[in-house]
Design a protein around this nucleic acid. Sequence first.
RNA 1: CGGGGCGUAGCGCAGCCUGGUAGCGCGUACGGUUCGGGAUCGUAAGGCCGGAGGUUCAAAUCCUCUCGCCCCGACCA
Length: 476
Amino acid sequence: MADKITPRHVDYSRWYTDVVIQGKLADYSPVKGAMVIRPTGYAIWEKIQQNLDRMFKETGHENAYFPLLIPESFMKKEAEHVEGFSPECAIVTIGGGQELEEKLYIRPTSETIIWAMYKKWIMSYRDLPILINQWANVLRWEMRTRLFLRTSEFLWQEGHTAHETSEEAEKEALKMLNVYKTFAEEYLAIPVILGKKSESEKFAGALHTYCIEAMMQDRKALQAGTTHNLGQNFAKAFDVQFQNRDGELTYVWATSWGVSTRLIGALIMAHSDDRGLVLPPRMAQKPIVIVPIWRGDEEKSAVLNFAEKVLTELKTKYKVIFDSREQFKPGYKFADWELQGIPIRLEIGPRDVENKQAVLVRRDTMKKQSVDVDEILDKVGTELENMQIEMLEKAKTFRDENTHEIDEYRKLTKFFGGKGGFVKSHWCGSPECEEKVKSDTKATIRSIPFNRKKEEGKCIVCGEISEGRVIFAKAY
RNA sequence: CGGGGCGUAGCGCAGCCUGGUAGCGCGUACGGUUCGGGAUCGUAAGGCCGGAGGUUCAAAUCCUCUCGCCCCGACCA
């Protein structure tokens, strides 16, 4: 605990790891590439789950659970899918001491097993739509892993829907993208750009992949969530046909969509500072900590008495941490809770008891103010709301300040050789031009934004006609 | 898979070159003084020196093999 966090400007990557480890969010496990999510970190995941789950249900989805193990033959049915995922799969070959007749893949994603089941369940248009979500763990054998951002096993939710028409599937993919956007902005306080992925970046087996893309404090992009219009690819691979309203047999239209524990990494990298985690109030399981301060027994009882009254009042509305640990001095406690991102700290010492006040400190701004205990409930409420809003604003300002329109290739390569950020440039749509930028700068097309201006331009690489700008950035 | 680094107390490390009683800091436990920004003093507990084999009177240290982890690249949510 005495360890200091490496400041962001010294080493961003070490800073991130320090925040995660010292904030007790996660720890390295004995299994390579897999991490342990500790209670403080898991509480954030639970917040993500609670809110998204509610939003999924409000949009008509229901939860189900499919098996962890997928028969090898299923994995091989959709050509692009196999190619995309096979290299990063772990495979079970022995069960009960016996070599298995058919190998079982540990799911890297569940499209295949789910569509095998949908074949059984879908006969008629009357069986549609199916709107199922599952909360699960998946495994992808990654070469290089980073806490939360890329671990071989991770937790996520995956929605898998089946529809009568192409239009309906497209609508669903966009609807869920908007659910993700709302969640990212209103809860995580991370502004996101909605858009479509280029061919090379889309999901293996999808027609289109949509994404919400966010900027981290090192100006790199992080894909925070994706939704896919799978077209009829999986229905064809698994032969899922239904009798439509005209009595004809047709293939089902599909979507899938997911967000993962990576969102916790995004949350950390978007807001935290050199003191540690900064949580938007809505993501804090316990948004308030009270730190009583005293000298000697006499003060101790007076302070604790007073502080407990404040606690009782706040508890009517919030979950509150009351830190009366004897073995630590106040300064230590301040640092400790700052590390864990608690949005509001209330310091209560002898002076405050005398004035019937408490010192309120906001984690994001670190600004202190004295608050009368009579109005403390209101004041805390206002500050929590303000903090939620201001954190989003701050992140948005940062992103906009680091987003630039660039029209010359030389400037583009120079930009990514420097401090980087988001670049809006014209692109003709060819994979070759996209690839050239990638090999020259390591930046990729993160998004073809929905809201881009219709604008005649010339591709920044080849000079061919382009109808709008796309976003280039280095990404996690 | 390529490059680099490292395995010694819970954590971070020194000791290894030049073999000879395993050490430091932090943390932990107990006691005292402290308490408005990471306190301090005292006492104590805590080790198959990653594993196997070899050399030697003697190995954390020398030799061989092996296992694992971390960081940087190519791949990926």
